[in-house]
Amino acid sequence: MIMDRFDHAAELEACARRDIAALRRLYDREAGFLLAVALRIVRRADVAADVIHDAFLDIWERAGTYDRARGEGRAWIISVVRYRALKHVRRASREAAYDPALHEALRDDGPDPLAALAASQEARALHDCLAALPAERRRVILLAYLDGLSQTEIAARLGTPLGTIKAWVRRSLLALKGCLS
């Protein structure tokens, strides 16, 4: 990771003081990355742009609720974008529109998430805890978190019964909670 001094928390606090220049700095800094996070979930460039638009309005509106004691500003922003992206895909009732061929085509794009985590020092804890999970359970967590797949979609993708996926999610979360705490 390149060391830099960009202070996401301070920019969010400035947004809470209605400093639109701070929002612009966050945009300049993170929009390309956030667009990629959103695209991975919504799978359409125009929808991803809508997600970022809505997410930045959310950031502006909700910056006052951000508390640096609760965590890093960048993670908070990523969450805002993910929730917006998830709302878009759920509203579009992707369950009905689920296209196994499309998902199959997309399944191997991008670097391996676990390998990327290993390369990032700040992500070391998550890497180690995910690595301790059985491979298929780790995959379930990442398909949900990064690709925004529902449990039904994950079941279809992995050819595993829905009930099994739900049990895996539950056990994985409990294991991760213990490991990450």
């Binding site: 639109i20 929002l23 612009r24 945009y27 929009a31 390309g32 990355f33 667009l35 990629a36 996070v37 695209l39 991975r40 742009a49 970022i52 638009h53 930045f56 309005l57 502006w60 609760r70 965590g71 890093e72 960048r74 993670a75 908070w76 990523i78 969450s79 991008g110 670097p111 391996d112 998430p113 390998a115 990327a116 985590l117 390369a119 990032s120 700040e122 992500a123 804890a125 998550l126 890497h127 995910l130 990442l142 978190y145 990064l146 991760l176 990450l180």
Partner: peptide, 29 residues
């Protein structure tokens, strides 16, 4: 969870920015 899972995005490569997007955001604000 929001904080601890966020590093999973380390594998996501940034895309080129959308030139008109900030204008849309500023316009909506």
């Amino acid at each position: 969870w929001e904080q601890r899972l966020a590093p999973a995005t380390a594998s996501v490569a940034p895309l080129p920015g959308d030139a008109g997007l900030w204008d849309r955001i500023a316009g909506s604000l």
